[in-house]
Structures are given as structure tokens and as C-alpha cells.
């Protein structure tokens, strides 16, 4: 059914045209003067050089989480690929050398040009292996291929950039809890975090 939208009724002053034109120009000139006099007050970011400050919940570039020994937490279950509405994730699975884990991704590609940053992959992941909390919301590349992030690129992050209370991040190599987690892993556990939530991290 068609929705009828009434035309905005203009007042007499607005209908005169010139008054409104000069009002618009005044605004433009005001901003122009401000940008010269006090550039730091302008509500505009230098795209793409400047990253915006984003809330922690913001869904930005993905990263793949790492176990204490630096391998990916991903078990190549394809849940993210299944959940993805943009079909931007491509996984190829292979046999893991670790018999207890069995499965791991041989390749894990995300095409950020297709991605709609909906976060369903993060929701779907049963292993907390994929997150979208990198805070990088601006993607600039010079070719289409460069927008396809592979496994290495997704795992290229440092625990130092994440808060100390983020246990899984800090268990990765270089993290605050890495030694502890590595010891647990050698004792037959995959991560200290796993011990904490016994309930649902069975195959990770």
C-alpha cells in the first residue's frame, strides 16, 4: 500500500527563497571561519587517518582468538560461515595434529568488502574463537584482494591492546596470563579460562 507523505508547508518567509539562501550561506561561512580559527573544535574526523573513539561494544574488524601456544582457538566447525548472512566467511578444515582437538582451519578468510558487521559470527561461535572487538572501524586498502583477511591477519593482534580482565585475550602468547595458561595446557588443559567455565567449552 502506498504511503502518502504530505509536502512540507513553507511559511511566507521560506517561500521568499533569498532569506533561506543567506541563512545557509551564513552557516557555511561560520564553519569556514571556525575551521581556520579553532580547527580542533570541528566535529569532523580526518578520514581515514584518524580512528574514531568507539564504545567497547562496537562491532569492528574481526580477530581470531589464540590458545596459549599461539594456535587458533577455532575448530573449523563452520558455525560462523553458516550464520553469516553476507556469506563473507570461507573456511577450509583440516585434521589437527593434536588428536584431542581433531579439527582446525587450514584457511579462514573473511571478505570485509562483503561483511555487513552484524556480529552473528561472534554469536554463533561455540569456542569464543572469533571476536569483533578490535576497535578498528576504518578499513583502507588499495586493492579488493587486500580486503580479504586470511587466518594470519586475523590472528595478528597483541594482548597488550586488550584489558587485563579479558582472560582469553591475556592467555595468548605475550599476554599477562600466558605462562599460567601454557602450564595448564601442558598439564592437559587447553586454557585456564576453560577450567573456569567447565560447562560449555567442550571441544575448544
Amino acid at each position: 500500500m502506498a504511503k502518502i507523505i504530505p509536502r512540507p508547508q513553507l511559511s511566507l518567509l521560506e517561500q521568499l527563497y533569498f532569506v533561506e539562501v543567506f541563512k545557509g550561506m551564513a552557516l557555511t561561512i561560520k564553519h569556514a571561519v571556525r575551521s581556520l580559527a579553532k580547527p580542533e573544535t570541528i566535529p569532523v574526523l580526518n578520514y581515514p587517518e584518524v580512528q574514531p573513539e568507539l564504545p567497547a561494544e562496537h562491532r569492528s574488524e574481526h580477530r581470531l582468538m589464540k590458545r596459549a601456544d599461539g594456535t587458533s582457538r577455532c575448530v573449523a566447525c563452520y558455525m560462523c560461515q553458516t550464520a553469516c548472512p553476507a556469506r563473507c566467511i570461507t573456511i577450509v578444515a583440516e585434521e589437527s595434529p593434536d588428536g584431542d582437538i581433531e579439527k582446525r582451519p587450514a584457511t579462514f578468510d573473511i571478505d570485509w568488502l562483503l561483511c555487513v558487521f552484524c556480529g552473528l559470527c561472534v554469536e554463533a561461535c561455540p569456542c569464543d574463537a572469533i571476536r569483533m572487538d578490535t576497535g578498528k572501524a576504518i578499513l583502507v586498502e588499495d586493492s579488493r584482494d587486500a580486503f580479504i583477511a586470511n587466518k594470519d591477519r586475523l590472528m595478528d593482534w597483541s594482548p597488550a591492546d586488550y584489558p587485563a580482565e579479558d582472560i582469553i585475550s591475556q592467555e595468548a602468547p605475550g599476554g599477562l596470563l600466558n605462562e599460567q595458561a601454557l602450564a595448564a595446557m601442558q598439564g592437559g588443559m587447553f586454557s585456564a579460562g576453560d577450567v573456569a567455565d567447565v560447562a560449555d567449552k567442550e571441544t575448544c
Binding site: 575448530v75 566447525c77 558455525m79 581433531e102 579439527k103 561455540p126 569456542c127 560449555d200 567442550e202 571441544t203
Partner: peptide, 8 residues
């Protein structure tokens, strides 16, 4: 005693 293996 069935494992929660469904993902793999």
C-alpha cells in the same frame, strides 16, 4: 555420556 562434539 554422549560428548558435545557436534561442532567437529
Amino acid at each position: 555420556n554422549h560428548p558435545l562434539d557436534c561442532p567437529i
